[in-house]
Every structure is written in structure tokens, then in C-alpha cells.
């Protein structure tokens, strides 16, 4: 097991997360590394900080100098690792820590976000700005931030897969956020659980590859789905035993919708059509859509899925 040594914090402009991290850091005898500290370290190493700052501003404007970009990343990595070796918890604020240390098993990546209304309120209260000015500032900072990360890492910081934890600042008190982060630190182990340990649902046994592809498409578009969650009885014998039933392939709970997929051609799927007709008669409130044959092939083809048998 590897201990968590580095917590990277990505945060929206207009939240008090830096103050919260400051409190946590004091409690756990950690070290905070932010832009200023990194510049100070580089100054000690003899680098021209003014030039560095100018170059950083260019990054925020989208000027891509590949040599500087690599040097810059290396500087941040080196300084962070130097502190990690001192055996204390490091909190890296910004600087693209979620990208630079993405695959390091000693790191934990947090993104702190907040709704616009919260951020405006925070800035107007803290800096006595007008709401218009606060909004202007937020837009400006968000824009620079987007450009900065796109230029530096060719990626957006908004990608949720970059983070272990995303916190909505407006949803939690400062104390609750402290407790959450402290809990992470207390674990002292950055371990990846197996699905069994987390009691995660097992991957469904799809009847065919196209169903699996369909599930992937739904997942991609953030549509919640369940695979064959319900079987509808269609016929009973005189003793009350179910003699015929139908199990639609997918259920989309957010839309209360069942979906049945089949690559069978219409002329050979009479049985299935009969069952769906019975289903609609017996359960008129059930919403079900059927995609079959050519129509289903066209649907798959739209998403670049072809020749899957």
C-alpha cells in the first residue's frame, strides 16, 4: 500500500477553499505549494521569476511554446517531489497538479466547484466588489484558466475523470469540507479497490455485443440504464404459473422507458412483436421502444458501430 502524500486542489475562482486547505494543512503539519511558493523555490534555485511570470501570462493567452511548457511542467514536478521526500502531506493548489501527477498512486485529486451565484456572492462579500464586477472577474479568470490548461496540457480541467473527488462548495460548510479531506488523509493509503470490495454491480451479461455497445453509448451520454431489470409476465396457466413472459433489454429510470433491441429482420421477429403487443395490452402504462433490423443497424452506424455480430 502507498500512503497518500500529495493532494492536488483544482478550484473555481471565487471560493474560500484556499483558506480551508490552510486550516487542514496546519492541523496535519502539511505543506501548501501554490504558484507563489513555487516561484519562491525557483528563485532560490536561481531562476528569473519575472521571466517565468511573463511566460505564464503568455500561457494564459494561449501562446504555446513547447520548450517552455516542458520546462515548466518539470519545474513543478521537481519542486513537489522535493517536498514529498520531506515526509509531509503536500497540498498543491492549482498548477495542473491533476494532470502532472495523474498516474501517481501517492496522489489524490480534488476539484472544488461552486455555482456562479455562490462565487459572485463570495467575491462581493470578501472583496466588496459590485456584482457586475465580480461576474466580469469570474468570466475573465475562467477564460484564462481554460486557455492555460488547454495550452499546457491540451485538455480541460473540467474533465471529471481527472479527479477522485469533486466538491460543490455551496453544498457543504467549511467544516464539512475539512472533515471530508481529513478523512482522505486519515486513510493514509491510496489504494484502488476491486469492484468486489466496493460492492459495485457486476458488468451485466449482455446477450450480444451490440447491446454492450448500446450500453456504452448511454453511459457516454450520462443516461442511467439498467439491463434487463424486470420480466413482465404475459400468459398464465390455470394454476397461476407464468407460461410466457417478456424481458426488455434496457430500462432508463430517468425517462421511465424500456428499450428492446434486436438485429433480427422484421419478417423473422413476429414472435417478439406479438410479445410487445401483449405487453402493451397488459401494461398500458409501460413505455417501451423497439429498435430492430435495419433501423437498429442505422442507429449503431450513426455512432460508428458497424459489423458487430
Amino acid at each position: 500500500m502507498v500512503k497518500i502524500r500529495l493532494i492536488t486542489i483544482s478550484r473555481d475562482f471565487g471560493t474560500d477553499i484556499d483558506e480551508i486547505i490552510n486550516k487542514i494543512s496546519k492541523k496535519v503539519y502539511g505543506e501548501i505549494l501554490d504558484r507563489k511558493r513555487i516561484h519562491e523555490e525557483l528563485a532560490l534555485e536561481g531562476y528569473d521569476v519575472q521571466e517565468l511570470e511573463n511566460k505564464e501570462k503568455e500561457l494564459e493567452k494561449g501562446v504555446r511554446d513547447p520548450n517552455f511548457i516542458e520546462t515548466y511542467k518539470e519545474h513543478v514536478r521537481r519542486i513537489v517531489k522535493k517536498y514529498i521526500e520531506k515526509d509531509s502531506i503536500i497540498f498543491l493548489l492549482g498548477r495542473g497538479g491533476q494532470f502532472l501527477f495523474k498516474d501517481e498512486n501517492y496522489s489524490f485529486h480534488i476539484n472544488v466547484i461552486a455555482p456562479l451565484s455562490y462565487r459572485i456572492k463570495f467575491l462581493t462579500n470578501k472583496f466588496l466588489l459590485s456584482e457586475e464586477k465580480a461576474l466580469e472577474l469570474i468570466r475573465e479568470k475562467d477564460f484564462s484558466r481554460e486557455i492555460f490548461y488547454n495550452t499546457l496540457f491540451l485538455n480541460s480541467w473540467k474533465d471529471p475523470s481527472l479527479y477522485h473527488l469533486i466538491i460543490d462548495r455551496s453544498f457543504f460548510t467549511a467544516e464539512e469540507i475539512e472533515a471530508i479531506i481529513e478523512k482522505v488523509i486519515e486513510r493514509q493509503e491510496s489504494k484502488i479497490y476491486t469492484p468486489e470490495q466496493l460492492s459495485l454491480p457486476q458488468k451485466p451479461k449482455f446477450a450480444n455485443k451490440t447491446e454492450e455497445e448500446f450500453a456504452k453509448i448511454l453511459t457516454f451520454y450520462q443516461i442511467r440504464w439498467e439491463y434487463e431489470p424486470r420480466t413482465f409476465p404475459l400468459e398464465w396457466d390455470n394454476d397461476g404459473n407464468v407460461v410466457e413472459s417478456f424481458t426488455p433489454d434496457f430500462y432508463l429510470p430517468d425517462f421511465d422507458l424500456y428499450i428492446e433491441l434486436t438485429l433480427q429482420r422484421p419478417r423473422v421477429m413476429g414472435e417478439k412483436l406479438k410479445k410487445i403487443k401483449k405487453l402493451k395490452n397488459l401494461y398500458p402504462d409501460i413505455k417501451i421502444k423497439l429498435f430492430y433490423g435495419k433501423e437498429y443497424e442505422k442507429l449503431l452506424s450513426k455512432y460508428g458501430i458497424k459489423e458487430i455480430k
Binding site: K158, D159, S161, I217, F220, Y221, Q222, K302, Y303, G304
Partner: peptide, 13 residues
């Protein structure tokens, strides 16, 4: 979906 070789992610703006 399908616009990138890597479809493991999720939709994003």
C-alpha cells in the same frame, strides 16, 4: 460518441 478513438469517456462540452 464515436468522434474519438477513445470512447471510454463521457460526453463533454
Amino acid at each position: 460518441y464515436g468522434s474519438s478513438k477513445n470512447n471510454q469517456g463521457i460526453v463533454r462540452i
